[in-house]
Design a protein around this nucleic acid. Structure first.
Lengths: 232, 232
DNA sequence: AGGAGGCGACCGAACGTTCGGTAGGAACTA
DNA sequence: TAGTTCCTACCGAACGTTCGGTCGCCTCCT
């Protein structure tokens, strides 16, 4: 499933998407030119436009597919979960795992929403998809509080704090660290349950095979240079 | 201390910095033009260059002063703290508070390092300053582990996870929420101590007057439009 | 024959940056 | 007091470059 950016026989659309997620994550959308993309896939800027309607449409497409993938996977996993504590554990674990395993895609997802023209159809669509996702968190927290399992001062604050803990994973997680992905997720689940004052439970680790696997996420994404911690 | 961007009698350098932090945080450095800055302070693009050597120097200056301010404040606060648990609590609380109170400045600090030319003197200087700051975290965690107070699987992972929880605050905290800043900080300290398996302690809330107050952070920063959660 | 894929050349606009010039005031001299 | 000389702050115009995007043509493959 690895994608060779320079292979002219590969699917061009897929190669462009792969290059886009790489460069958008590394330099940011605004600082990446169509010519940069072309250089990465061995094409001219004009060639890119044979496969893509516009630079912004490329970003929107990327974000839409990625967010949709997360939504689908989340709903698949939640389908078998019962109590709010179980659901919260699943939400935390899966969001963390997705960010750890797809750091480039998720960095674009989380950080480039502002690059879509406000009010455009694409922008509104991504926001709507994100709302659908966040509704799972909102409902889980509300259910837990209503049922007496959770005790939180401010549901919105708790949700955003936990989500930002999970999404932050894409900025620092490396698979060659001392902790496995499973350990990180379990750790975060423990922290999350503590944050809502729910009793820590023996967590059945989530089935990672249900998580979305973005085909354009390069296998060596974790070795991609990052501006910080460059020499550590 | 509030700064009127359009007041021609105000200090021009200060006005430009204020506009820069606003626009860089809102649109990103790459998507902000010198002409945008000029428009914000009622100057032409040429006028800006009378006060600023280059666009990148403006960003570097901003980041350097901000990071230096955080470093100084952190060292002032740590000077009176003893045990690793106290020091960790201070680090968590102060980093959270700085991000909550200066969301625009901290978003630029945390997210625009990649916009500085890699290898340039300015880039290296910011990284060095950041290293100095992170060393406080590293040492605190190492001391706690060595002394038996903390029990963590992976110090680097723990540090980065906790720091990203704190820095995430700038993305969602609003002073008009259900929780005060003090409550958020206390909550995060509790979570952080749980993450290192240290006994939760009665936290003496940090002295927020020691925290850096960036003069260019607009007083209505929390009302500045953000791409996500726009309609919530 | 004809469509898919791609190239070179090009467009208008915007970019960061530079340059010559100027209004206004302070400072000094006659 | 009047005149000369600076200096700070800024503007209008332009520099060369790069931007996102378009157009026509060529070359394969079917």
């Amino acid at each position: 499933m690895i994608i060779d950016l320079t292979d002219p026989d590969g699917d061009a659309h897929e190669r462009i998407r792969t290059a886009a997620v790489l460069l958008f994550a590394r330099q940011g959308y605004a600082a990446t030119s169509i010519r940069d993309l072309g250089r990465a896939v061995h094409m001219t800027n004009a060639g890119i436009y044979h496969h893509v309607a516009s630079k912004e449409a490329l970003l929107a497409d990327l974000m839409r597919v990625a967010q949709q993938g997360l939504n689908d996977a989340t709903e698949r996993m939640l389908a078998t979960a019962g109590a709010p504590a179980d659901r919260l554990a699943l939400l935390i674990g899966s969001l963390t795992a997705v960010h750890a395993r797809n750091p480039l895609t998720t960095r674009v997802m989380d950080g480039e929403l502002r690059s879509l023209t406000p009010g455009s159809a694409a922008h509104d669509e991504i926001i709507a998809l994100r709302d659908v996702y966040e509704a799972h968190w909102r409902r889980t927290l509300a259910d837990g509080v209503a049922g007496g399992t959770f005790r939180v001062a401010d549901q919105k604050l708790t949700r955003l704090a936990l989500m930002s803990m999970c999404t932050g994973t894409s900025e620092w997680y490396r698979p060659d660290g001392d902790s496995t992905l499973e350990q990180v997720c379990a750790e975060f689940v423990t922290i999350g349950l503590a944050a809502v004052r729910a009793p820590a439970q023996v967590t059945t680790s989530p089935d990672y095979s249900l998580l979305p696997d973005f085909p354009w996420e390069p296998p060596d994404a974790h070795n991609d240079p990052r501006p910080d911690e460059a020499r550590r």
